[in-house]
């Protein structure tokens, strides 16, 4: 199904409102009771002077625990979905996802290594990010060395380099202390937003913004890149430059997301497909739609992760449990 552009705008507005409603709903749920009146009071008191009619614990719970977590869930969900959509378009392959360039595996390696060496949270984030970029640059480098179909080369190089990094991961897990570092690494590899705090919220938006802006600005040109490379070139586009900028931006989005949340699979593959079903393949609409749908999805899944049981479930397990069957459903329906 596809809509034309004019009809898609109200749909985007609706998705945005849905995201806001989901965010407010997510602020209210949890084991600690906060009413909607208290919630708005606390939030508005940050801007306007309001006499507190809530407890200090409620205030801290909302602003130091739930709010950063919700903001980060939205940012990570949007970033992974936008990265996935961009990769699919520029590699002209609807099966592409952030994992294809080894971005996630690379980030996981850096983070495991930092945890193994007992580094602080901030260092873990930075190492995850650097290692992810190294992994992607290696993939790009090797794919350029090979002759022939560049898109296929890139995917193959992604699998090979990813496999080397994942071997490194396995080795780190083997030598990690089973009493403290191993559980931390394993938990991180399964993905979770339980570590989201105001400190992470205060810096993570910077790399995500740097990654998001070029993709939004180039979204019309990304449409052209879905054509055959020669065709795109004859339309006066510098395909190599545009493609490189989009790859770097999408990788930055993935690496920065993974560095705060651990590995969260399937969001980058399934959300773009849901967005495609809803608004069609025109990136002018598709990219904003992916961002909104990715944000809503990860927020809802995180609500489940923190409220389903008394112990917190790793997010990666839930996204796989929901994402993989859904993707199978999409595949089967597509064939009909």
């Amino acid at each position: 199904m596809s809509l034309n552009r004019k009809k898609s705008i109200p749909l985007l507005v609706f998705m945005f409102l849905l995201l806001l409603v989901t965010a407010v709903f997510s602020l209210l749920i949890g084991r600690f009771d906060i009413s909607i009146r208290e919630c708005f009071g606390i939030l508005l008191s940050k801007i306007f002077p309001i006499e507190p009619y809530w407890t200090k614990v409620q205030n801290n719970m909302l602003t130091l625990v739930r709010l950063p977590r919700i903001v980060i869930a939205i940012l990570v969900g949007s970033s992974l979905a936008v990265a996935g959509t961009s990769y699919q378009c520029i590699f002209r392959n609807p099966m592409c996802a952030p994992d294809i360039l080894g971005a996630s595996t690379g980030a996981a390696f850096g983070a495991s290594l930092a945890i193994l060496l007992g580094k602080s949270n901030m260092t873990i984030t930075i190492w995850a990010f650097l290692s992810s970029m190294v992994c992607v640059l290696l993939v790009l480098f090797f794919s350029r060395l090979c002759r022939g179909n560049q898109i296929l080369n890139l995917i193959l190089a992604g699998i090979m380099v990813g496999s080397i990094f994942s071997a490194g991961n396995s080795y780190i897990k083997m030598i990690a202390d089973p009493n403290n570092t191993l559980p931390a690494i394993t938990y991180w590899l399964m993905g979770s937003l339980s570590g989201a705090d105001t400190k992470k919220m205060s810096y993570i938006w910077i790399p995500l913004l740097i990654g998001m802006v070029p993709i939004f600005l180039l979204r019309w040109k990304i449409n052209i890149l879905t054509l055959d490379d020669d065709e795109a070139k004859t339309m006066g586009i510098n395909t190599r430059l545009t493609r490189t900028v989009v790859i770097l931006a999408a990788t930055l989005l993935t690496a920065a997301s993974v560095s705060v949340s651990g590995i969260i699979g399937w969001v980058g593959l399934v959300m773009p497909h849901i967005a495609r079903k809803l608004v069609g393949d025109d990136c002018r609409i598709l990219i904003p739609a992916s961002a909104l749908i990715g944000g809503i999805f990860l927020l809802l899944v995180d609500d489940l992760a923190r409220n389903l049981y008394t112990i917190e479930l790793p997010l990666g397990i839930l996204t796989s449990l929901i994402g993989a069957p859904f993707f199978l459903y999409l595949m089967i329906r597509r064939r009909e």
Binding site: N93, P94, L217, W220, K221, I224, R276, D281, D282, R284
Partner: peptide, 23 residues
């Protein structure tokens, strides 16, 4: 590979006349 409307497909031809980052 991806599904565009006829209008959008034709519109792609105008890309060279569009400045820089605009749609």
């Amino acid at each position: 590979i991806f599904n565009y409307t006829v209008k959008d497909t034709v519109l792609m031809g105008t890309t060279a006349t569009v400045d820089g980052l605009h749609s």
